[in-house]
Design a protein around this nucleic acid. Structure first.
Length: 114
DNA sequence: CCCGTGACTCTAC
DNA sequence: CGTAGAGCCACGG
């Protein structure tokens, strides 16, 4: 058996990771890929989203690592994403969203933030 | 097989 | 906080 085609599986995992993002929250491409079990495949995540056809997929919750929208400012995708995010209560300023770094979260976990 | 392109990321300045 | 350069992965020509 050998199957071969493991690419579709990766795509599915990426999509699952995106669907797993709670409403009102956001995640980076790299973060999504990592959650999908595909570390270092941030670009793959972006490619999957670019080719996604599922209208129920919360693709708008996926941003760059910096919290910046991946689309070019002024483009339709950029506007749609920012609008969708705002509709969920996410604050989008200057095409960017407050992206809490995992590192900071770990710091809080270790040092005990309050 | 080489090259260009892209909804990316990290480091350095 | 901003830009610039190099790295990386997947794909089509």
């Amino acid at each position: 058996m050998g199957g071969g085609a493991d690419k579709p599986a990766s795509h599915e995992r990426i999509l699952a990771a995106v669907r797993a993002i709670p409403r009102g929250q956001v995640a980076g491409y790299g973060e999504v890929a990592r959650r999908a079990g595909l570390p270092g495949r941030a670009r793959l995540a972006a490619r999957v989203l670019s080719g996604n056809t599922d209208p129920t997929l919360p693709w708008h919750r996926v941003l760059r690592s910096d919290g910046r929208i991946a689309f070019a400012e002024g483009s339709s995708g950029y506007r749609e994403q920012s609008q969708r995010l705002r509709a969920e209560g996410v604050k989008v300023e200057r095409g960017r969203v407050r992206m809490p770094r995992v590192e900071a979260d770990l710091d809080a976990e270790i040092w005990g933030r309050r």
